[in-house]
């Protein structure tokens, strides 16, 4: 009878021991896999938002310069012409980017990102400043 009890105990002990070892290795493996996936997604999203942010900043500078030139010089020969609708969309896009806050707890964060993407494309078309990197970066 003792031999059979030992056999049952050995099986149970072997399972517990191997499970504990598996948990330790699983924690390491899970961390590494999660880190790699998070790194890739972070690269994509950070690159996208950074690109939008700097483009919008430059566009605002260009619109401001154009307005100053129009005020100082009434001659329309060398002045650029940005559409009114484009300028309005640029203001909205600027507001969206300023308010953008990536919070994993926020359920609407992806909707906001989609809205930014659409507004960016629309604004670039209306201002006549389509960026050739759109195809490369697949935004």
């Amino acid at each position: 009878m003792k031999e059979f009890d030992q056999l049952l105990s050995v099986e149970s002990d072997a399972y517990i021991s191997s499970k504990e070892q598996g948990i330790d290795d699983g924690k390491r493996l899970g961390y590494v896999e999660g880190y790699q996936l998070g790194f890739e997604k972070g690269i994509e999203l950070g690159q996208e938002i950074g690109y939008y942010q700097s483009c919008v900043t430059v566009w605002n500078h260009l619109v401001s310069i154009n307005n100053n030139n129009n005020n100082n010089n009434n001659n329309n020969k060398n002045n650029l012409k940005f559409s009114v609708r484009g300028i309005q969309n640029l203001e909205k896009l600027t507001k969206l980017l300023e308010d953008y806050h990536l919070d994993f707890n926020d359920e609407n964060i992806m909707n906001t990102l989609s809205e930014i993407r659409l507004k960016f494309k629309l604004t670039s078309v209306q201002l006549g400043l389509q960026t050739k990197e759109n195809d490369e970066l697949s935004f």
């Binding site: 880190y35 790699q36 996936l37 950074g50 942010q53």
Partner: peptide
């Protein structure tokens, strides 16, 4: 792991 990787990478690429 995902959180740490995401936070690190997003700052750099941004």
């Amino acid at each position: 792991g995902f959180n740490e990787g995401f936070k690190e990478a997003s700052g750099i690429s941004y």
